[in-house]
Write a protein that binds this DNA or RNA. Structure first.
Length: 115
DNA sequence: GGCGTGACTATAC
DNA sequence: GGTATAGCCACGC
């Protein structure tokens, strides 16, 4: 594993605005690691304790939570998302409304959130 | 290097 | 809507 990669991944995840979500692939791309979506999952599974990272804002490309329904992690992510005002239907988030595929702009410069 | 596995993704049916 | 399949990258045996 590369610490520099992990650092960029955590940085990108930390930049996801509250009330929005992003996908593993999008985070990987924003971190300068296109195609390393699985690496993002690996990195998030090894987040150091004490680091307040909004890992719950990262879901699959189709909006589904990457954990099996009913699991502890699933329930926690579900609760955190709803607490931020992100509705989750059957373990899925509406990416059309809350998805943030263009994380790159958030890293290099904010854009208009309106649609 | 082959093989299986994993917080993934895109495409086809 | 769903399942199947192939591609993807990093890791451990």
């Amino acid at each position: 594993m590369n610490a520099a990669h992990y650092r960029r991944i955590y940085h990108a995840v930390a930049r996801i605005p509250s009330g929005t979500v992003s996908s593993y692939g999008a985070v990987a791309g924003a971190a300068g690691l296109p195609g390393r979506a699985r690496l993002v999952g690996k990195a998030l599974s090894e987040v150091p304790a004490g680091l307040d990272l909004p890992w719950h804002r990262v879901v699959r490309a189709d909006g589904r939570i990457a954990f099996p329904s009913g699991s502890d992690s699933f329930d926690q992510q579900l609760a955190r998302l709803r607490a931020e005002g992100v509705p989750v239907r059957r373990g899925r988030v509406d990416m059309k409304r809350h998805g943030r595929p263009n994380l790159d702009r958030l890293l290099w410069g904010p854009d208009q959130p309106g649609d």
